[in-house]
Each structure stands twice: as structure tokens, then as C-alpha cells.
Write a protein that binds this DNA or RNA. Sequence first.
DNA 1: CTCCAGGGGGCCA
DNA 2: TGGCCCCATGGA
Length: 215
Amino acid sequence: MFLNVYEVLFKFFGPQNWWPADDRFEVCVGAILTQNTSWSNVEKAIRNLKVHGYLSPERILELDSDILKSLIRPAGFYNQKAERLKIFSRFLLESGGFESLSKLSNYSLRETLLSLKGIGKETADSILLYAFSKPIFVVDAYTKRLFYRLGLIDSEKIDYDKLRKIIEGNIPADITIYNEFHALIVRECKEFCRKKPVCENCPIVRMCRFYERKG
DNA sequence: CTCCAGGGGGCCA
DNA sequence: TGGCCCCATGGA
């Protein structure tokens, strides 16, 4: 059933080609900056970092904190996010960069990321999937909302890792599917599922109606 | 005016 | 563990 949802979304919306970024470090920066923040605001912050030549772990680490805060200000929560960007940049440099970290097992790398202040499960998994190309499914509020409305889970308050494992156990361990599925869920919820009541034009709702008629 | 974004940490029961 | 509150800007 999870795979059916994916196929319907893919046929309706087409490939989303996430994550929108020029390199792996930009993916990580975006993952931190987009915490509880609209992507349009994140784009402004990343643009600021980029045009001033600060979009690298070395430059962010040596950059004055107040200047860093002013550059990422449009993304909100700039005090904590500036600290989080510094912590992640320091971690990346001290651990030998992406190539070195890629040698860790998926589990070890995930636990390592989660040990960093400011990197929670969703941010860690976004980095694992979109910066390290690891087959880890990214769960978010949209994922819980959508699957709850489809009746695939009992509650929207389901535990993060519990839902992640359910999904990972029900779709092939294919990076492309993991990548597109999460992006498609976000796309679907932005266009149809954002509002409280389920939108009848939602392709997923249409799919459910179709299966209800067929029995 | 209110609501909410591609969350996470800290605190407390 | 689970529930709350805080963080902050900008678009709808």
C-alpha cells in the first residue's frame, strides 16, 4: 500500500529532484536552516551565505557569530541556528569530511549525527539521505498526517522511528524511491493536504475512493 | 489580525 | 516516555 501511494504521487507530480542544493554541505546547511521554517526563507539565508562566499564549513567556522546571525536572519531562530551551523561545521572538519564519514555504517553515522546539538531525527535523516545517499526514510509531520489520513497508521502522534521502520519495511531499499517519496509527500501536502479537511482533489484521496469502489 | 512553515532542546511530571 | 514551552522571520 505504501508503494501504491508512492506510485500515485510520482505519476501525478513527476520527479521532484530533491535536495535543491549545489553540493552536500549546502544540503546540510539547508537541513538545519529549514527546521520549522518555510523553504522560501531558507533560500534567502543560503543566498546570503553564498554571495558572501561563506557557504563552506571552513568559512562558517571562522566567521564572526554576529555576522553569521545577520546573514541567516531571514530563516528565523538565527541565534540557535548560527550555533548549530558552527557545531556541524566543526564536526565535519574534525571528522575528515563527507568521504571519511561515508565509511561509517548507516547506524553509526546516524547516531553520530544525532549526538550533535541541534541535529534531531528528521534533520539527521535528511542529511543521511540527501547528503550521504543512505537509504534512510525521512519522516516529518506531513508524512504522519498523510499516512494517518489514509488509515495506514493509528495516530498522527506515532513515534518517529516506529513510522520510519514501517515505511522502510514496506518499500524497496532504493535511494531514488526514498529520495522522491519524501519530496513527493511534502509536495502533496503543500498543494492539497495543508488545510485541515482532506481535499477531494488530492490524488491520494482520489486513489482511496477508487479502491473503495472496487472493494 | 492570526496561523504556520521541509524541528529541536530543555524541563518537568 | 510524553507533554509543554521557547526560539523568530516572513508569507498567506
